[in-house]
Structure formats: C-alpha cells, structure tokens
Design a protein around this nucleic acid. Sequence first.
DNA 1: GACTTAATCAACCAAGCGGTTGAAACTCGG
DNA 2: CCGAGTTTCAACCGCTTGGTTGATTAAGTC
Lengths: 202, 202
Amino acid sequence: MAVDQRRSPSSSERKRDPERTRALLLEAAAAEFGAKGYAATRTTDIAARAGVNKQLISYYFGGKEGLYKELATAWHTEGTTMASTEQPLAEVIKAFVMTTAHNRDQGRLWAWANLSGDTPTVDAEFLRGQVEFFRTRQKSGEIPADLDPSLLLLVLMAAAAAPLTLEQTARQLTGEDPATPEFAEKYADQLALLVRHLSGRS
Amino acid sequence: MAVDQRRSPSSSERKRDPERTRALLLEAAAAEFGAKGYAATRTTDIAARAGVNKQLISYYFGGKEGLYKELATAWHTEGTTMASTEQPLAEVIKAFVMTTAHNRDQGRLWAWANLSGDTPTVDAEFLRGQVEFFRTRQKSGEIPADLDPSLLLLVLMAAAAAPLTLEQTARQLTGEDPATPEFAEKYADQLALLVRHLSGRS
DNA sequence: GACTTAATCAACCAAGCGGTTGAAACTCGG
DNA sequence: CCGAGTTTCAACCGCTTGGTTGATTAAGTC
C-alpha cells in the first residue's frame, strides 16, 4: 500500500499518471454520487468532472459499480478518529458534526447508501466500539441511566448528519444555507449544548 | 374532494374505474419511489405493482415525473396533525415518531426528496407554524432558553426519522429491524424520554 | 340498441445509458 | 533510440428506459 515512489519526472506535470487519474476519478465520483445518488449519476458526468476519459472508469474500477463500492467502503477509516475517550461528550459530538460538515460528499454518500440499503455503510466494528464508548459514559453518569446507549447514539448520528440528510428542510427551517461553515459551527454548538443539557445542568 | 359517488355498479368489481386506477398507481408509486428513490424506480415496476398498464401513468399523471410530484407534495397535509399544542412536548414527539413509522413509504419519499433537493419537501407554512409552536414551549420553560427553536426542531425531526433515513445504520447499531412496530414503539419512548430530560428532570 | 366518449392495453420508438473495442500516445528499461 | 508494456482516448454497440401511438373495450346517453 506504500506510495509507489518511482523516479517520476517532476511528478506533477506528466501526461500519464495512474495514481493521479485514480484519485481524480475517486474525487469526482464522490462529488457526483454524493450530489445525486448512485442511480441518478452518469458515468459521463464523473469523467467530465475528473477531466478524464469515461473509459478509464472501467479500466481502473471495473465500471460504475466498482467505483461506487470503492467509495462506499472508504467511509470507515475516516470516522474512527471520533472515539477519543478523553474530552467531554459534548465536545466529541461537536467534533463529529464538524467532521461531517467538512467531508460533505462522503457524508451524503453515506446517507444515500443508508436509504438505498445496498452497502453496509459503516464498519460494524467501529459502531460496536462507539456504543461501548457510550456505555462507559453512561456508567460515569455523563448520560442518563434510562437511555439506551445504542439508540442515543443513533439519535445523535442522525442529528449530526441532519444538515446533510435534511438539507432541504434545514434550509426551509432556518432560512440559511446549511452547507456553509458558519452554519456548521452554530449547529455543532447547539448540539453540544443539547448534549450538555442531557447530562444534568451544565 | 368528495368521493365521486356516481351510480356505479357495485363500485368494487367493475372493469373500468378511473378513481381506483389512480389510487392504485399512487399507492404503488409511493412504495416504489420510497424504496428505491426516483431515479432508480422503473415505471414498469410501478405499473406491475399496481396491476395496471404502464401507459396509464402517462394518461393520468403525465408521466413518471408528474406521478412523483403528486406524491412529493402530498406529504404536507399528513403531518399537520402534529401541531396539537395541548399535550406535553415529549408526547408530541412520540406521536410524530409513530406517524413516520406508519407511513414509511411517505417518510422515505420525504427523505429521498430532501437528499436530492428537487422538491420543497414540506409546506413552508407548516414548518413556520411548528417553529412558532416550539418558541411558545420555550417561553413556558419547557425547552431550555439557550437552544434555538428552529435548530432544535431540526434535530428532533432528524431524530424522529432516523429509523427511516438511517435504517441501515440503525440495524447495525441495535441488531434489530428498525421497520417493525416494536422498534418504533421503543424508539419513540426513548426519544420522548430524551426530550423530557431536556426540560429539566422528569 | 346505435353512438359517443372515456379508459385500457399491446406494440413500438427514439434517446440515453454503461460498457467494449481497437488503436494512438506516452513511459521507461535496455 | 528502440521496443515492450502501460495508460489514454474516440468511436461504437446493445440494451434499457420512459414515452407515444393506434387500436380495443367498457360505460354512459338518447
């Protein structure tokens, strides 16, 4: 998996560059799939956005579906950073919201996948870990004892992703654009505040 | 809107029946669109599920898109029942969750529409009313003063719809099937509990 | 019971789709 | 600087799609 460090001629300005092409396609595909969902996305659009010939999708990923799967399973690695057990829960949630706010494409992809129910969407191991994490918090009194940790986690994930999954409704509701960093910041703060309210008064 | 009560021969077993055909198509379309989303849905599948010729989609709704729009805008009327200002907030939320749990097709349709961002998804008037409703609750102390009513509403809507929008993740998280009535019941209770925790101790 | 109108259907069609093909263009070891 | 192998591309292809067409059948009218 190490970066194929061959003696590339000034690495940046070559005509042929598999690594770069792959990366361009993946990036473009994330944007397109994220925006329209799998079914509505046209391979032509992906190629155009990547500035690359459409055939290369087949060449590198074995077709549209292969490209999609590569992206759908890539989500796992990202999120794992969330499990930092040190900070207070409110901060963790806030960080989580900000993460989804940055990788919007990935996040939307995850939302599409969840709806269409084709892929596992998230690594099961990761989720198990997070639930365990919540259970610990609960024991230490940071989370009310009468809430089911896994359901609470579900609620918080849904809430964190709301500016993505319910973008339309969010816009109607607030009158602002849920895609801006300012909105993300404000929203993250509010969610943190809400979580703090859960753990008895702040 | 009254049921066109013409002297129909035993109303149920006739060969030609526009009203019934329309209704069959709408129902089938809601199921198909809800399950796969607009782009992935085939008009053939809708017709087949309705037990009707595919051409009738064009005949009655002017095509696939017309059928979709008819459904996408129909969501408004349903939800309006939520605004009953009498019961405690926790109960209102619970009722809302149960509503989405029943009309799963409609709910999923709403989720798809939100993601793809093509339709307004919900009547703006309705949303405004709900926010106002929350603001009132806040004044009466039922909701912490430092939470923005519209954002809190967004959070709760996202949470309520989580078993639909994050069905996949919900399944991984709990090990149960989020589509069952039992799950809905349990989940609704948990959300109500959570809301109660927000309004100071229960 | 003939006639008009509305409802339904099977067959057909053009457009758009993802994928394949075969050759050109680049890279690089020798 | 040459030849083998990799990477890229334009053109093409078969299939699926949503929609249309024109005929057929049921319902309502007088």
